[in-house]
Design a protein around this nucleic acid. Structure first.
Lengths: 206, 206
DNA sequence: GTCTATAACCTGATAGAC
DNA sequence: GTCTATCAGGTTATAGAC
């Protein structure tokens, strides 16, 4: 349980939580550098000084939000790829389904993480539990058992690409391909079926 | 006429060009908001005032660089997808090969474009020659001829994802999967073969 | 805990000498 | 065209009253 409030009505959250919610929104939308603490204060409907009272600095607040977001992003992946009870096909379905659900509700999450990691690689080390958690995963072993001739990272990268990239491209798609919000969501739902079918075909390809 | 130099030795470029080169580097590395005009001036090894003398403002300079980068990014795609003389398979090979070459030399190009478009959608309209240039392309028609039951955008999105996403993920990969620069480049070369094979399998999948 | 006022600093841009 | 010096405005952060 991340928070200690017993029952917290949605209409009356603590000031600290209001600031965090606002920070989540503004940071992910605009990125660290383009965000002013005033934007966050205004969004949270609180006084600017309170931000520093609760979080000391913009940077400290950002770090909290970023760690949260990284956690969110990877907590989808980790339990699935190391599940010894499921097949490779199950895992692919699970990853596609969970990521598409997560990103449908948080479309700006991947672009936020990726662009901030570029400017701030250090923060990324903090959450990376251990290096090579991908290569040492059950999924990779299953992959190698099935197709020893395929570099597992190549496959994994394509799988993640098909799940995540559409959300990174979303702003572009909406402008260059006239894809409305409805259409986009329908397409992402369809993707939950397409990705397992396509990756299955990829693993059969010679 | 922006410049009058006929032949310009690499060792002695004009001040204007030095500023542009520096701007290309700093803007793509850090993004618009995190870039200070002082960074660019320092990188270009010129006086800060000269930046404004030649380009009026940070924003104007950025616009020039961004248009250049968008041009670069889409000029790979446009001629290929509308070539009536090539097959669908040829087009996939061409896209994979050209994008991987382009991005190997300009790895931060996609993340730069994608993250700046988020903050500044207007500039994007300027270069988008016409909407729906994807849907109206020869490639989409060929796709529909082959598999009328597949949404061409779904296929195209996966194709571009497999070409571009690895470069967006590159900073993450290098930290979470311990992929060195050499390994990464080898993988991208391998991808030029994998993508045609995989997309072919995808189009056969039922 | 919350507010107002302000300090301390940074950044884009320009004036004016050369 | 290029430089130094500086301005004007904005930004983070804090001091101090309530």
């Amino acid at each position: 349980m991340a928070k200690k409030e017993k029952i917290k009505p949605v209409v009356d959250v603590s000031t600290e939580e209001k600031i965090k919610q606002a920070a989540r929104k503004v940071f992910t939308q605009k990125g660290y550098a383009a965000t002013r603490t005033r934007d966050i204060a205004e969004e949270a409907d609180i006084n600017l000084a309170l931000l520093n009272y609760y979080f000391r600095s913009k940077e400290k607040l950002f770090e909290i939000i970023m760690l949260e977001k990284l956690q969110k992003f990877f907590s989808v992946l980790l339990p699935i790829i190391n599940d010894t009870a499921t097949t490779l096909e199950n895992k692919v379905e699970g990853i596609a389904s969970s990521y598409i659900d997560l990103l449908t509700a948080n479309a700006d999450l991947p672009l936020f993480i990726l662009s901030e990691v570029r400017n701030n690689p250090e923060i990324f080390i903090k959450i990376a539990q251990r290096k090579n958690f991908l290569q040492e995963s059950v999924l990779v072993k299953q992959l190698q058992g099935k197709r020893a001739d395929i570099n597992p990272l190549q496959f994994l990268m394509s799988l993640l690409a098909m799940c995540i990239f559409p959300f990174v491209m979303k702003p572009v798609l909406q402008r260059m391909a006239d894809v409305a919000e409805n259409d986009f969501q329908r397409m992402m739902l369809e993707r939950k079926m397409l990705i397992p079918a396509w990756t299955k075909a990829m693993l059969k390809a010679k």
